[in-house]
Design a protein around this nucleic acid. Structure first.
Lengths: 158, 158
DNA sequence: GTACCGGTTGGAGTGCACTCCAGGTCAAGC
DNA sequence: GCTTGACCTGGAGTGCACTCCAACCGGTAC
């Protein structure tokens, strides 16, 4: 299989495949007589998994780290597991956040719909509120921290 | 409230707040005698919602579009709703993808753990394979079914 | 034998979303 | 009056993840 075929099968562009090889995400393939890359179909499994990691929010650095560990064989099992466990945690958190947002959106969409129908709708009461002013942001920006205790608050963001 | 206070309360940096104002995500605030921005606390609702949109994967362009519609008042209700509905679809899709990944990860983590314990584990047989784009949404993957030799897709990505 | 297609390389360019900086103003505290 | 610290502006710089490009090469079809 040459790079064009792999591109088609994997859904990545040839440029991206070469880029991934350059940074080390993909192993260096064999070359044919004319110096062209020749791939084994098994590479598709790996590309698929990489793609999954990416599409669930793992950045290139961590994917690179995982790829690097993978080349080290059995010795890296524990580290690889830990990396995946960390990612699992992130994914679970993302699911929680997204699920919460689904409610917020449904609420808001519903209110919009009622307003479009001419109904008088009380000021948005959900959704946009996250931090209750009591919790001090504690200086260090708690980046993507999610507060499960967030309560709805009167809201003027229509 | 001045920009420093708002930064602390919103979790955004003053630079980011000014940047958001520059591109139009935030309305231009009033200024005090010395030309400094003075904010009303209600802006926090809006920032919170923007932040939620962002953290659920809405890019700056769409947030900008929404912000722009918002300034147009009632006339833009329908368009705003459509935008949110589109985002809702995206969020629902993301949840599905992430949830699927959770299974993949659990499977893989489990196998790693067994391998670490010295168990002989059959070649990774799951996970990395996605529905090859030959079989469309045959989605119902046999989730937690332990298949001792089902598909011809033995996989070397350990 | 030449047109064409698909491949090769290194390097430059893109879009997003900030983040940082220089050089300045303003208000309050000592 | 002077220092300090928060704030102002415009613009440059950063990191990620590609994406595009020029210039070239090798194999096949006509």
């Amino acid at each position: 299989m040459r790079i064009g075929d792999l591109a088609e099968k994997s859904g990545l562009s040839t440029d991206t495949l070469r880029y991934y090889e350059k940074i080390g995400l993909l192993p260096r393939p064999l070359r044919d007589g004319g110096g062209r890359r020749v791939y084994d179909a098994t590479i598709l499994r790996w590309i698929d998994f990489l793609d999954r990691l990416k599409s669930t929010g793992m950045g290139i650095k961590d994917r690179l780290r995982y790829a690097d560990l993978r080349t080290k064989g059995e010795a890296s099992l524990t580290e690889r597991r830990k990396l995946l466990e960390a990612h699992r945690g992130k994914v679970a958190g993302d699911i929680a956040r997204l699920t919460e947002m689904l409610d917020v959106l449904d609420d808001k969409i519903d209110r919009y719909r009622r307003m479009e129908a001419g109904e008088t709708v009380d000021p948005a009461f959900e959704s946009c509120a996250r931090t209750e002013h009591g919790a001090p942001p504690s200086k260090e920006a708690p980046k993507h921290e999610h507060r499960p205790g967030a309560r709805p608050r009167a809201d003027a963001e229509t």
